[in-house]
Amino acid sequence: MKFFPTFVLLALASSCAFASDPSPLQDFCVAVNDPNSAVFVNGKFCKDPKLAMADDFFFTKFRYPGNTSNQLGSKVTTAFVDQFPGLNTLGIAMARLDFAPYGLNPPHIHPRGTEMLAVMEGTLHVGFVTSNQLNNTLFTKVLTKGDVFVFPQGLIHFQLNIGQTNALAFAFLSSQNPGLITIANSVFASKPPINVDVLAKAFQVDNKLINYLQEQNWFDNH
C-alpha cells in the first residue's frame, strides 16, 4: 500500500496541471436565462438540446469595426459566453480588437484564460509581464499582419498600435468566460475607492497624485 500516497500526489498534481474549464459531458449546452431549465452547467442554464438551432452557434458582431473614437483609441468586441451563448461548456472564446492610429488596449489580465492574438492589419507593439516569481520580466514584440503572439493566463498584457493607420487583430481565448481585469480601472476606479494611504504607499507617491488619479474617468474599451 506504500504506492497509494504517491499515486494520490501524482493525481492531484495532474489535476492542477491541467485545470481549465470543465470538459463537456454532452454535445453542447447552449446557455439560456431560464431558471426552470433542468440542467445548470458552468454557471449557465442549458437550453433543451432538442430545441437548439444553427443560430445558437452563429455570431455576426465581428463583421463591423469597433468604434475607436475614445480616449484609448481602441475597441474590443467580445464573443464570450455572455455574448455568444453557444460557447457554453466549449472552453473557448474570441474577441475582435480595433485600433485607431496609436490606439492602446491598456494593461489587463484574463484570470481564467490564455490568449492567442493574431494580427490581421497594421503594426502592434505587444507584451506581457511575468509574475513576481520570475522577477516581473517583460516579454515584448512588434507584430505585423499574419503574426501571432500568446499571452499566458493571468499575466498582465497590452497591445499598442504603433502605426499611422488603423490596426485589426483577433484574439482566441482558452475559456468560455476568461474574465477581464483592467489594471488602472481596477486600482483607481474601484467602488468604493481604495484607501488613498494604501495606494500612496503601494506606488510610493504622495496622496495628492492618488487623489488626482482616482478623480479621472477611466474608460472601459470593451
Rank of each mutant, 00 (worst) to 15 (best):
N67F: 07
S69Q: 12
N70L: 04
Q71W: 08
G73S: 15
K75M: 12
K75D: 10
K75G: 14
K75C: 10
T77L: 04
T77H: 02
T77K: 13
T78C: 07
F80P: 08
D82Y: 12
D82L: 03
Q83V: 06
F84Q: 13
F84D: 10
L87Q: 06
N88E: 09
L90K: 14
L90T: 06
G91T: 02
I92C: 13
A95N: 03
A95H: 03
R96Y: 01
R96M: 06
R96C: 05
R96F: 07
D98L: 13
Y102V: 11
Y102M: 11
G103S: 13
G103H: 13
G103M: 08
P106T: 04
P107W: 02
P107H: 11
H108D: 00
I109T: 00
P111Q: 02
R112I: 00
T114W: 01
E115S: 08
M116T: 12
L117T: 04
L117P: 02
A118C: 15
A118R: 12
M120R: 14
G122K: 00
G122D: 04
H125S: 14
H125W: 12
V126W: 03
G127L: 13
F128R: 02
V129G: 00
V129P: 04
T130Q: 07
T130R: 14
L134C: 15
L134T: 12
N136W: 14
N136L: 10
T137Y: 13
L138M: 09
T140V: 10
T140I: 07
K141F: 03
V142H: 11
V142S: 03
L143K: 08
L143G: 09
T144S: 09
K145A: 05
Q153Y: 01
Q153I: 01
G154K: 04
G154R: 00
G154V: 00
G154C: 00
G154N: 06
G154I: 02
I156Q: 04
F158K: 13
L160T: 15
N161D: 08
G163L: 02
Q164N: 13
Q164C: 15
T165R: 14
N166W: 06
N166P: 10
A167H: 02
L168P: 07
F170K: 15
F170L: 05
F172Y: 11
S174V: 01
N177A: 02
G179K: 05
I181G: 00
N185E: 15
